[in-house]
Design a protein around this nucleic acid. Structure first.
Lengths: 224, 224
DNA sequence: CCAAAAGTGTTGTCCATACACCCATGG
DNA sequence: CCATGGGTGTATGGACAACACTTTTGG
C-alpha cells in the first residue's frame, strides 16, 4: 500500500516468574514509588528474542546465569502515548537465590503475585499491569497442556516439588496420589534418576526425577 | 537503562481464515510471482488493533463489512532485515462471497491452506510462511477450548455446519452423534432458533442454531 | 536403646463421567 | 440420504483407603 511507515520506538519487557515459599512471584525493579517489570529499549540491529534474553541475563545483576531459562514471546502492547510499543516476553525460572538483603534500592527483587494484585500492598506501573496479568494467565494455561511446570523446577526434583508448582501457579490443592499417577503415566514428562532426596522435615524420602523429552501433554492436566 | 531507543518500522499482517468448500482457506493478495498475506505499514498515531481492523475492512475491497469479525493478536515477528517488525493478527470469517471472477490480478482471493503447504501449487512470501503456520495452529488449538468455531459460521447455522468447521480446521472426521451431544451439553455454546433449514440435498431438515454467550468450553472439545 | 507417634511417599480400589462405536427411527 | 435419539463398552480422572519408609519424641 502507499502508506508511509510509522517509525516507532520498541521496548521489550519480560515477565519473570518463579516459585518462592510456595508463592508465585515476579521479578520487579523499584522505580520511584512503584515497581517496573524487567525491560528496556530494543537496540539497533538487535533481534527481539535476543533483547529479551539480554534482559534476563543482565536484569539488575540478579538473575545470573539463566541463559537456558524458558523464554517465550507473550504479546505486543501499545499504550495511550503513541509511537511506542512494547513486545512482552514470559520467562520461568527455578527457585532463585533470595532477595538481596543489602539496602540497594535499585536492585531487582521477587514479589509475590498476590502482593501486586488489587488489594495488595505493592504497586506496579500501570502499563505493566495487563502485561503481568497476561503472563500469569499464559503460565496457568500452559501448565495444562505442556511440560512447562518443569521449567519452575531445578535440575533434579521430586514429584512433590512438581505438584507444589501446580498448586502455587493455579492456587489450588491437588490430590497427591492422582497427581503422581498422572505425571508418571504421561510418557516423556519426567524421568527417574534412581536416587532419593534427603527428607527436609521427616517422612519417607521421595524419589528424584529430571525433565523428560516431552513438550506437550496428552492428555492435558486439568485444573479443578 | 541508558540505551538509545531503536526506531523501527512496524508492519501489521493479518491471517484471515475461512471455510470454503470444506477447506480451510486463507485470504491472500498476488504480489509478483507469489502471494502475500493482507498487511501494510502501521500509520502514525494508529493503534495496532485499529491497523489490523483496517486491513480487514479495506483489504483489497474484498472482505467488505466485517467489522464484527473475530480478530486477535497472534505474535510479533522480526526478520533478517533489521529495523522492521511485523505484528501479526488472526481473523476468522464466515463463508464469504466467492473469489472475483473478473480478471483483476491485484484483487485478494481465497486459497486453501493445502495449496500453500510444502508440496502445494501456490507459493507464499517466505516471511509470511511462519505467520500463516502459527495462525493455523492457533486456530486449531483454540477450537479445542473456546467457542471460536462459531466465528466461522454465519448468523444461523446447523450442527452439521459447525461440525464441518471442526473437520475442515482439524482435518479429521468426527462422529456425528457424539459431536451433537457434546455441543448441546456444553452450556452457552449454541442456542436453538426453533426453525429448521431447508435440506440442501435431500434428508431430514436440520435444526438451526446461533452463537451462545459462552466463550470458553468446559470441558474441552478434544481432537482425535 | 527401644517403642510409639507423626509425617510423607507410594500403591490399590471404587465410582462418576466422557467418549467411541453401533443401532434404530423419522423426515 | 441425513438428522436425531438411544444403548453399551472402554478409558480417564477424582475421591478415598491402605501400606511403606523415615524422623521425632518419650520412656
Amino acid at each position: 500500500m502507499g502508506d508511509a511507515a510509522a517509525s516507532v520506538a520498541v521496548a521489550v519487557d519480560v515477565v519473570v516468574l518463579t516459585i518462592r515459599a510456595a508463592q508465585l512471584s515476579v521479578l520487579v525493579r523499584p522505580a520511584g514509588g512503584h515497581f517496573d517489570l524487567l525491560g528496556g529499549w530494543l537496540r539497533p540491529d538487535e533481534r527481539l528474542d535476543a533483547a529479551a534474553r539480554r534482559r534476563l541475563t543482565t536484569g539488575g545483576g540478579f538473575v545470573g546465569r539463566s541463559s537456558d531459562a524458558h523464554l517465550e514471546q507473550l504479546k505486543t502492547y501499545d499504550f495511550d502515548k503513541r509511537s511506542t510499543i512494547s513486545v512482552a516476553y514470559l520467562s520461568l525460572l527455578p527457585s532463585p537465590p533470595d532477595n538481596p538483603t543489602r539496602h540497594d534500592r535499585r536492585a531487582a527483587r521477587w514479589v509475590p503475585i498476590a502482593c501486586l494484585s488489587p488489594g495488595g500492598d505493592e504497586r506496579l506501573a500501570a502499563d505493566h499491569v495487563p502485561i503481568l496479568a497476561d503472563g500469569v494467565e499464559r503460565a496457568r494455561a500452559k501448565l495444562e497442556y505442556s511440560s512447562l511446570a518443569t521449567a519452575f523446577c531445578a535440575e533434579a526434583f521430586t514429584l512433590a516439588d512438581l505438584r507444589r508448582v501446580y498448586e502455587a501457579v493455579w492456587g489450588v490443592r491437588l490430590d497427591v496420589p492422582n497427581f503422581r499417577r498422572k505425571v508418571l503415566s504421561t510418557p516423556g514428562l519426567v524421568e527417574p534418576l534412581g536416587c532419593r532426596a534427603s527428607p527436609a522435615s521427616g517422612g519417607r524420602p521421595a524419589e528424584l526425577y529430571r525433565r523428560g523429552a516431552a513438550t506437550v501433554l496428552h492428555p492435558a492436566m486439568l485444573r479443578p
